[in-house]
Amino acid sequence: MARENIYTAALMEHNAHPDYKYELDEFTHEHEGINPSCGDEMVLRLRLSDDGQTIEEAAFTGSGCAVSQASADIMAELITGETVEEAKRLSDLFIRMIQGEELSEEDQEDLDEAYELESISRMPARVKCAELAWRTLDGMI
């Protein structure tokens, strides 16, 4: 049985050097996500524009496996500068993808680097790790 390598260069890079892992001081929204079974904990903070329509800055803190950390970093990068509506759509797309749904080519492109995590959908035990940041986002917007 061939085993897929979910630890792509992109994933390892985001895990080792997460650009969006820091304490965001001036935030408008904050939400905590946990995976009790893994011990993964994450706090996601967002700063929305004055009109509440656009995500101006997104950052996370916490600890967890490489998959959860890289997924969070990729997500924060993807949603920064996007409207709240678009972020919701992207998080919905990601969760559908990681649950095993096949996405259209257009949707795949919209997820950009996050689509590289698609192979994790075939590793049931790791789906929760990949989802953590996205579910946390989903719970706050």
Binding site: R3, Y7, S37, C38, G64, C65, A66, V67, M123, R126
Partner: peptide, 19 residues
């Protein structure tokens, strides 16, 4: 993280428990 350890060992055909 232990889950990463177990996943990478799995790629090498080594089955352990993590969690």
């Amino acid at each position: 993280h232990p889950h990463d350890v177990a996943s990478i060992l799995d790629m090498d055909g080594v089955a352990i428990r993590a969690g």
